[in-house]
Design a binder for these strands. Structure first.
Lengths: 349, 349
DNA sequence: TTACCGAGTTGGAACGATCCAAAACTAGCT
DNA sequence: AGCTAGTTTTGGATCGTTCCAACTCGGTAA
């Protein structure tokens, strides 16, 4: 346990009360804008608050009132712009509601995730927004969090969870539909051999996107080859690395539906290393709608999930849950929108 | 003030004490691993803690001990990958030291910054890491924070501050030297007409980088034109927008030193809109070393500031300050490293 | 005179931990 | 049994707030 003793003693309600000859209780009432106090008293107290530079001690108040004014935000990867935007949206809405964000990063490690949850819970957050690490298991999370704070799951499912039946809210992207749109778009452009690139099949979001891809392929009567499915970590670096795996078969694909934008941007790099110009010699689509997608070369066709807006939405959902602790679990599926840019070119003749 | 009443009553030290027939004080000693307690007692208590699913209430402990175990992290723009990486680094080091990160975003607004600081201070952080918004004024920040928590300034100075003389620590990048390196590099490649592009002159980091640029130009005996200095907001979008301003003069520049990576990536986009291929028809350099820089087209020559490492460093500096509240203010200048990539081509003949 | 009113104000007990001085054991030795 | 020294344990005060029942006080009705 870490400790720090500030230099000057803090100004408390007692100091203010003594300073203007009223009781502690009265000062407290003033602070909370109660109509009970006489306006002359209020003015005197407020003047004294200013004079002494009083700062409200929310921890003490929360202790007494058995409430909390913080929300924990646990993310698997803050360095991914998608989650950074998401976090910015969460903080924006929470701050507007008078809550403060307790941040925790897990770096895609389920073990760290449990440690982080444990540590954050000791600060008694009113709720938790969790974007799980890969392989994070439902029973573990349930054991760590229990009934101590309502949980909102974002973006991914937990391993071993029966989605609808669990005691938490969920805000998910419409992964399957989105991937289907992307695939259909490539088919419409004239592609026949289309791969699905990136992500791990363990991850729920990846499975769903892959399912959407299969759905579209099947509906169009197109074959999916085994080597048309390349797995890699959902980062640019690993994606760039795995690009060659697309071209091992006799008839390589002319296009790829990528797991997300990071992977798509990495794949572009990998393609160039093979002398293929993305958006001309090879078509691809992303997923997430991060800012980089619009600015890449070529600009990336992607499914915009509006991460900042999703952050705001997540905050709203948690805050609503606090109002109605016993309401039924909410399952929200956020829509995604196909944004067509130059990366999804027609096949070369 | 917001409130949330949890569903089940929380398990406290009293419940544990009652549950295994010892006093509250003893349980407290067990929790803190005191050598005073008998090992049989300890075992009994630990069993009971597990049984009842006890969660330590750090707020209550902090109240009594007059300590804190959180650090406030106030950022101007979390959506910028530079700051997102920085935040990840901060959180990583803080978590390792048993501290928790209180996040606050200001969106480059000095007014919001003050509000955010006020709100975070109510939670009694042990320290504050602040990357100021543009136009954030030293006296305002000083009034808001006072002696309530030690402050570490990152990346930018405050308006109206006499840098070395203020009562806070500073972690800054070696902006001037970095910009000088970038400029010298372009000169060495054969450029003579070099612009300085992006950022606002009010921002201290921008002024320093511009100074480094001027220094190199002067040292090489090169002229700087007035329209060779284009100001814009430090975002991709605004940079793309202002690209044309570079080409208003009779003899336009053949290269630009950009305020930061975001601006450089935006400028690339703007150049292409004019039919100029960056890295072939026009050379440019960035600043920050965000991950996108390496993956752009062309890859961006930049000054790597290792944002994640800076985050870890910032956390360390604050933690050290907590150990030694009265030590002299620390002024750290983090080195930056020139990373040469393809964007800084020689001029076309 | 007493009773009662509404508007303001207040003392003391919470909240869940820690600290501290003192009490309760245990064992060893006269 | 009494005394001492060492090891464990404990009650009560405390941190800075909120809650609540009770109090004061001038005015007014019975």
């Amino acid at each position: 346990m870490s400790s720090y003793t500030p230099i000057g003693r803090k100004v408390t309600l007692n100091d203010i009360a003594a300073g203007c000859g009223v009781s502690r209780a009265t000062v407290s009432l003033v602070l909370r804008g109660s109509p009970l106090v006489n306006k002359h008293t209020r003015a005197r107290v407020e003047e004294e608050l200013r004079r002494q530079g009083y700062v409200y001690n929310r921890a003490a108040a929360n202790l007494r009132r058995r409430t909390s004014s913080s929300i924990a935000l646990v993310l698997n990867d803050l360095a991914n712009p998608f989650f950074a935007e998401f976090a910015a949206g969460v903080d924006e809405s929470l701050a507007a509601a008078g809550f403060v964000t307790l941040l925790g990063c897990t770096g895609e490690s389920a073990a760290r995730e449990l440690a982080v949850l444990g540590s954050l819970l000791e600060h008694g957050p009113a709720g938790i927004i969790l974007s799980p690490a890969e392989h994070s298991r439902a029973p573990d999370v349930l054991a760590a969090v229990g009934r101590r704070a309502p949980l909102l799951l974002f973006n991914r499912e937990l391993d071993g969870a029966v989605a609808e039946a669990e005691p938490w809210d969920r805000l998910m992207l419409d992964n399957q539909h989105g991937a289907r749109l992307a695939t259909e778009h490539l088919i419409e452009r004239g592609h026949r051999r289309i791969a699905f690139f990136g992500g791990h099949h363990d991850s729920s979001s990846c499975r769903q996107r892959h399912a959407g891809y299969l759905e579209a392929m099947r509906a169009a009567g197109l074959r999916t080859e085994p080597h048309g499915r390349v797995e890699c970590a959902p980062t640019r670096l690993d994606a760039a690395h795995h690009a060659p795996a697309l071209f091992t078969g006799a008839l390589p694909p002319t296009a790829a539906v990528c797991y997300n934008d990071a992977v798509a941007l990495g794949l572009m790099l990998g393609l160039r290393r093979r002398g293929l110009e993305p958006g001309r010699d090879f078509a691809l689509t992303g997923f997430d709608g991060i800012a980089e997608a619009a600015l890449g070369t070529p600009p990336l066709t992607t499914l915009s999930a509006a991460p900042r807006e999703r952050g705001r939405q997540a905050a709203e959902l948690v805050l609503q849950r606090l109002q109605q602790p016993r309401a039924a679990g909410r399952q929200v599926l956020a829509p995604v929108e196909l944004v067509v840019r130059e990366s999804s070119c027609p096949p070369i003749a």
